[in-house]
């Protein structure tokens, strides 16, 4: 059975046709060993997405997950994650999804594709300025669920930050697919955001902040 409905496919095709400038390459790290069910959905979903535009290049990675994570320098060990599927944009390897962008997150993911294709950053000027000045590599972990309508505020904001500044890596975690990780970070309400530097949690909170406030909070912990 198809993952996307026919009407969604039609609409998506049109959106891609009208909005994609340059090619966007996406790597999907599948993990049939530890997460066969979701990996299968991932493969189907991205095969369908790929068929909708020749500007979307999908690269399925199927080798040993540990090795791939190591190679990609995802420093994932710090967070205890050794599971897929994982989604990475080739041009912005600092935008990463652990698990599938389902439900409320799907529009955010599609927007990421369009924004990356057009190099268009959609942020309040003030937020972009603040983020531009961050000079230390930071990981922003954002835990979400597919039914969380407030989560896209956080995931959209952070992925735009990652486009502004390569020091900011956004890792969006589908909390229900990664229970061990969620437990480790005490995720009992979403969105839960954790800012990490050198693998240490520098700040964390529950709830989405408007972009400018979010940016300032990141800048503030940079020195800690």
């Amino acid at each position: 059975m198809a993952v996307l409905s026919d009407s969604d496919k039609e609409a998506l095709k049109k959106i891609f046709e009208e909005n994609l400038n340059s090619e966007v390459e996406i790597e999907i790290i599948l993990d049939y060993e530890k997460n066969p069910e979701v990996s299968k959905i991932a493969e189907e979903l991205f095969t369908e997405i790929k068929s909708l535009s020749n500007k979307i290049l999908i690269n399925f990675v199927r080798s040993d997950i540990d090795k791939v994570l190591e190679e990609k320098k995802l420093r994932i060990d710090t967070y205890g994650n050794r599971k897929g599927p994982i989604i990475i944009f080739s041009k912005y390897p600092n935008i990463v999804w652990y698990g599938l962008p389902a439900g409320e997150e799907f529009p955010v993911f599609l927007e990421q594709i369009l924004h990356i294709s057009s190099e268009h950053i959609h942020l309040p000027l003030e937020a972009a300025k603040v983020i531009h000045e961050v000079s230390r590599p930071l990981d922003i972990l954002i835990f979400v669920t597919p039914t969380c309508p407030y989560c896209p505020i956080a995931t959209h904001g952070s992925s735009m930050f990652s486009m502004v500044n390569k020091n900011i890596r956004t890792i969006i975690v589908e909390a229900t697919e990664f229970p061990e990780l969620s437990e480790k970070f005490n995720v009992y309400a979403v969105p839960k955001i954790a800012i990490l530097g050198d693998g240490k949690v520098l700040d964390s909170w529950e709830g989405a902040l408007p972009e400018v406030e979010f940016a300032r909070r990141i800048k503030k912990v940079e020195g800690s």
Binding site: T145, T147, P149, Y150, T176, S182, N186, A189, V190
Partner: peptide, 16 residues
């Protein structure tokens, strides 16, 4: 305490 929530729609999937 964590685990006390005010949005069931958001957080229900975490309590599988």
């Amino acid at each position: 305490l964590p685990g006390v929530s005010y949005c069931a729609e958001c957080d229900a999937p975490l309590f599988k």
